[in-house]
């Protein structure tokens, strides 16, 4: 008999998720499934505003012992902090035509995968009292939801994303310029896209965001067929986003194609690395917990970074 943890984790598999049509339910499943595999609650976060002291018990982190109070009372007390919204998240989801691609090997289209990731992250983020906003884009930002940490905000985000893929092309440079204008405060931007645009334009756009002191994480989505190119026999490839047609024998192009994909990913990884931007590639056939892990890892590193700064101020 399967235990509850195993039962939930199976919903991280895109094949299983594809059977769940409702995006809200899908997002909840992802988050529950993700955390059912961990041993601590997501609701116990760390904040930086002091709330109260409690007695030290065995197993508490020594870093949180209030040493000043120990000097006064000769007893160990642990500082407890009040939870508060400390991150602004902006989920930037690509809704261009290319995101609608779905091969027979994949259970979800890239867009479905992208909004599943976005919904799950936003759900988790709101649980952590982070502010979450949304931007859907193709050639430009088509839908924009300002970040908020209100619990009901999640439904608005989910409704905004559901089924919004369109026929337009991707234009990343213009998107980043528009984002840079709209986001006036420091925001953690999750860009979820197949990035089918000129790599130099993309990197230029990311550089602009970086210049505006915005932090970014790039989730590059790929359909499994785009990564393996498994086709045989004469095939006419009809390009989405008005990129033209090509009649060819795919087997003869496979090696070169994969080289091109690898070259692009390498260029993106290198370019993002130089800008201190996380670049993560996703295969739409792989489980979605990777995305949530990436979010939490980024969040932790950011909070730890701030915490260490606060602590250093207190010490001073």
């Amino acid at each position: 008999m399967l235990d509850a943890a195993t039962d939930y984790r199976k919903y991280l598999d895109p094949k299983a998720l594809a059977k769940i049509g409702n995006l809200e339910l899908r997002a909840r499943m992802i988050v529950e499934g993700f955390f059912s595999g961990m041993h601590h609650s997501p609701h116990r976060g760390l904040s930086i505003e002091f709330a109260d002291h409690r007695s030290y018990v065995q197993g508490d982190d020594l870093r949180h012992i209030d040493w000043k109070l120990y000097g006064k009372t000769d007893k160990y007390y642990i500082k407890e902090y009040e939870q508060e919204t400390n991150l602004n998240l902006m989920l930037v989801v690509d809704a261009s035509e290319s995101m609608g691609f779905q091969s027979v090997q994949s259970a979800l289209s890239k867009f479905e995968y992208a909004i599943s990731i976005a919904a799950a992250i936003s759900y988790l983020a709101l649980q952590q009292h982070d502010s979450v906003g949304l931007a859907l884009f193709d050639e430009r930002i088509s839908h924009f939801v300002r970040p908020s940490n209100h619990p009901h905000h999640w439904k608005a985000i989910v409704q905004e994303m559901d089924g919004k893929v369109g026929p337009a092309k991707t234009s990343m440079e213009r998107l980043f310029a528009e984002l840079a204008e709209r986001l006036t405060y420091r925001t953690l931007i999750f860009i979820i896209s197949d990035l089918f645009d000129d790599e130099n334009d993309i990197l230029r756009g990311l550089k602009l965001l970086r210049h505006k002191r915005q932090e970014s994480v790039v989730f590059n989505l790929w359909d499994v067929a785009e990564l393996t190119f498994p086709f045989r026999g004469p095939t006419k490839f009809a390009g989405l986003e008005e990129t033209g047609n090509l009649l060819t024998e795919p087997g003869s192009l496979r090696r070169r194609y994969l080289e091109e994909v690898e070259r692009f990913q390498t260029a993106m990884r290198t370019g993002c690395g130089k800008l201190h931007i996380d670049y993560v590639t996703f295969n739409t056939s792989s489980p979605l917990d990777v995305a949530l892990s990436a979010y939490l890892a980024t969040r932790s590193s950011r909070i730890r970074h701030r915490f260490s700064r606060v602590m250093s101020k207190e010490t001073v």
Partner: peptide, 16 residues
Amino acid sequence: YRRMPWAAMSFLLAAS
């Protein structure tokens, strides 16, 4: 031939 809608066309065209 079979017809296949394709998103990653830029890579395919470059390979071609």
